[in-house]
Design a protein around this nucleic acid. Sequence first.
DNA 1: GTCTATATTCGGATAGAC
DNA 2: GTCTATCCGAATATAGAC
Lengths: 193, 193
Amino acid sequence: MPKVTQEHRDARRREIITAAIRLFARQGFQATSMADIIAESGLSAGAIYGYYKSKDELVQSAMTELLDLRFAARSGDDAALPPGETMRRFITGLDDEMGDLGLLVQVWGQAVLDQTSRDATARIGDRLRAIWASYLTEWYRDGLGLSNAEQLGERFAPLYVGIMQGYILQMTVFGNFDGEAYLEAASVIRPGP
Amino acid sequence: MPKVTQEHRDARRREIITAAIRLFARQGFQATSMADIIAESGLSAGAIYGYYKSKDELVQSAMTELLDLRFAARSGDDAALPPGETMRRFITGLDDEMGDLGLLVQVWGQAVLDQTSRDATARIGDRLRAIWASYLTEWYRDGLGLSNAEQLGERFAPLYVGIMQGYILQMTVFGNFDGEAYLEAASVIRPGP
DNA sequence: GTCTATATTCGGATAGAC
DNA sequence: GTCTATCCGAATATAGAC
């Protein structure tokens, strides 16, 4: 069907979607019109509709693209880093990939509205919890020298995911936020009795 | 100017806005049309525009209404309750007032887009941190018997606000969330060395 | 494959009667 | 103050030429 190579098609799709994402970050998904995207991408209406059947499909693709994060594989020797430092690297990586953490908050806002988006965020949630469980196990064992590290890791993983979400939210929607102090606090807490 | 009492005007405004909020919870702010609100409220276009100049003003009022939470005054003797329990009560109160925690997530999504909404959420953020600082001071002093309770309270308040935000997010946009285990974990962590 | 021009639908807001 | 009917602009998607 396609008269050009698959690579060319993929490149075009990426071109379109990155232009769209730039606008989404500034204006939000719904407030961004196809006309905006056409102008930002430098293409024409006809061209864009050749790659995406509808605006909705484009938005869904953008969300998937944003959520399908290639979480930088932790390099193992990071195990001894305290949670706050790990979190900082994680969030920095997130910010680099998405360009703007506000996009993530927007995706959450969308996820409460439709099942498709919610499924996508749920998948990420599971991955995040697994990553944190793995890291925390190492931290509790090697960093703090606790015995039941694995159980503790599983148990506290959702909490650290929440702490990370809290960081992102306070950074983007609250004022007066001292991120360093927050990460410091996240490093210092310990499982109690 | 008004031919009816102020009470009547206020009641009508409330009537309109609660109808709108019901729809916002289901469909989101932008996807809800004035026609929807007209139908849901049982009033007419003319009537509604008599109370709100524009849809935008209505949306902003709804957000303010939602955020202007009359946080149930903690009754003092709650001081000995662990953080997870305090958080549960807080969130239950929030849910009762807003009707749907998803609305809060939507508001956050909006707050990254415009300054007006961001100002509103920032104000709430400050109040939340102050409340948590106050509670934590009591908890650290009376519950855990720590000496520098006040400093600790100030220091960890943003973290607990974040933990609460994380709870709300994971409850609304992630699947497989064990809220009880999360609150339990929030109760158990302690300030470390 | 991509462009320009346009058909069509939809939503916010207003006008004027009651 | 409230209703009905309607105007106007905007936005999505398509048609048809190149």
